[in-house]
């Protein structure tokens, strides 16, 4: 069973934000208006953490794209009262949208603040719902959502592989952010297979994870920026 993971190279990430935009379009993530945004209800499955280090003139800026980190020990799934979020067999912290009761406990429990909530019904007029990405269902109001590693793409990749009567190959299944990254800063693949790009990269000395000390064992690795 593969264990899907991601490596984001902060060296090559230029912070252009295409991953975030691609994610929104791919997953039909609602775009709230300015008033809602002002309240802090912007929904970004892929967010960007920007850090400024040092003082003028010796400043360093870091752009850190932040999907869901798909922890191996996810604090969010543990607290979910109805199993609307769970760690699946392939290591993806999945969300079951029709199951969620909207208690937002997982949001409160996530130390990475990756979850978004549909405060209102996403404003996709009925007429356009079919022109959204048909592979991802639109969510109703009142439920929590977050990055799923584009799990629908895994389904499609598996089906395709099944039709062709073969196993999944590296690169068959890639989330939208990794696929669209202009600078190829995001790699994606099976962490348990030692030969994949992600396995190779995460073994390098530059690899680190966010808030590793919490023991959440995220499956999104970052590679330190080096000058």
């Amino acid at each position: 069973m593969p264990r899907w993971g991601m490596v984001i190279d902060l060296n090559t990430c230029t912070g252009c934000g295409e991953c975030a935009a691609a994610c929104k379009i791919e997953n039909n993530v609602a775009i709230v208006g300015p008033e809602e945004s002002d309240m802090g209800r912007t929904m970004l499955w892929m967010d960007m953490l920007t850090e400024y280090e040092g003082e003028y003139p010796n400043v360093k800026v870091r752009y850190i794209p932040r999907p869901c980190l798909h922890c191996d020990e996810p604090p969010c799934t543990r607290v979910c009262p109805v199993r609307a979020t769970y760690l699946n067999d392939e290591g993806i912290v999945a969300q079951i949208f029709p199951q969620c009761i909207g208690c937002r406990y997982c949001m409160a429990a996530c130390p990475y603040t990756v979850k978004s909530f549909n405060w209102y019904r996403p404003e996709w007029p009925d007429t356009m719902e079919s022109a959204l990405n048909p592979d991802v269902s639109a969510r109703p109001a009142g439920i929590v959502e977050k990055c799923t590693f584009c799990i629908h793409r895994l389904q499609i990749a598996k089906e395709e592989a099944a039709v062709e009567n073969r196993d999944l190959r590296e690169g068959d299944y890639i989330p939208a952010c990794a696929e669209s990254c202009p600078t190829k800063a995001i790699s994606f693949g099976d962490l348990d297979d030692p030969d994949t790009e992600v396995s190779r990269l995460r073994r390098t000395a530059r690899a680190f994870r966010l808030l590793e000390e919490l023991g959440t064992e995220p499956k999104v690795y970052y590679l330190y920026e080096v000058e």
């Binding site: 909207g102 409160a108 909530f117 109001a141």
Partner: peptide
Amino acid sequence: GLGVTGMAQPVS
């Protein structure tokens, strides 16, 4: 929806 409250992210 819960939008009528003052809650948001991260104060959910």
